[in-house]
């Protein structure tokens, strides 16, 4: 009945995006347990300790199911759990070495099945998605440009902390952000997150020149 109502609603509203979404959601859902089982079979060549790569946590379940557009209450839940996940350096210093940060931003190495045993530290691959410095013209556009990131924010302490947190777990600010949770998921170490924070927030970083 609800499904029918939605279909009629969709027809009446015609081409609006909301209607298209309603129509899509009215289709019978695929049982998530079936998808999980299918994935386990398809990735049976994976080592046992890779099982978590299929399952995903509560945040990813919501983001996948809603096509990264969580409802307001789910968005709040995701934000809260991301905020609770933050870990900071013991000495409280959030700015590392921007030169190391630049190397981390350039590198896409790490955690692919061909990267074991690891020959290099993991990279953040920031340039794959973000413009960051005027010198690097080979940058992607999935994420926003970060040119002059710190300069625009006047290098404030609050913005430095916010930048650190976005790198550590961006869902604290943008629920269902497309960006990897570099800190929470153990892609980058706390020192590496500091180095990237410095790349964004140091006045002498090429990002701000």
């Amino acid at each position: 009945m609800i499904s029918k109502t939605k279909t009629i609603l969709a027809a009446v509203l015609g081409v609006s995006v909301a209607a298209t979404l309603a129509l899509a959601q009215s289709k019978p859902a695929i049982d998530p347990a079936r998808i999980d089982a299918m994935l386990k079979t398809a990735f049976k060549a994976a080592p046992a300790d890779w099982a978590g790569r299929i399952e995903g946590d509560e945040t990813m379940k919501i983001c996948s199911a809603t096509n990264n557009a969580p409802k307001a209450d789910d968005a709040k839940k995701i934000e809260a759990s991301a905020k609770a996940s933050m870990k900071y350096p013991d000495d409280g210093k959030l700015l590392g070495d921007w030169q190391k940060g630049e190397r981390i931003a350039q590198s896409g190495y790490g955690m692919r099945f061909t990267d074991y045993p690891a020959a290099n530290p993991n990279g953040g691959n920031c340039y794959a998605c973000h413009q960051m410095t005027k010198q690097e013209v080979s940058y992607g556009t999935i994420g926003p440009s970060l040119l002059e990131y710190g300069k625009i924010r006047k290098f404030t302490e609050a913005d430095t902390k916010a930048a650190y947190e976005k790198i550590y777990n961006s869902h604290a600010v943008f629920p269902c952000s497309l960006m990897p949770r570099f800190g929470l998921n153990g892609i980058l170490s706390i020192d590496q997150v500091k180095d990237l924070t410095a790349l964004l927030m140091s006045p002498d970083s090429p990002v701000n020149k």
Binding site: I30, I35, L39, R53, I54, G56, M60, C63, S64, N67, N68, M111, Y127, A128, C129, S138, Y139, G140, T141, I142, L178, P180, R181, N185, G186, I187
Partner: peptide, 26 residues
Amino acid sequence: VLFNRRMGPFDFACTTCHADSGKRIR
């Protein structure tokens, strides 16, 4: 469903790269 499914330590799905027009990686 699989196309939208975010997985792995980088939280990537097919849609991370293939759900918008005019985007690029590098």
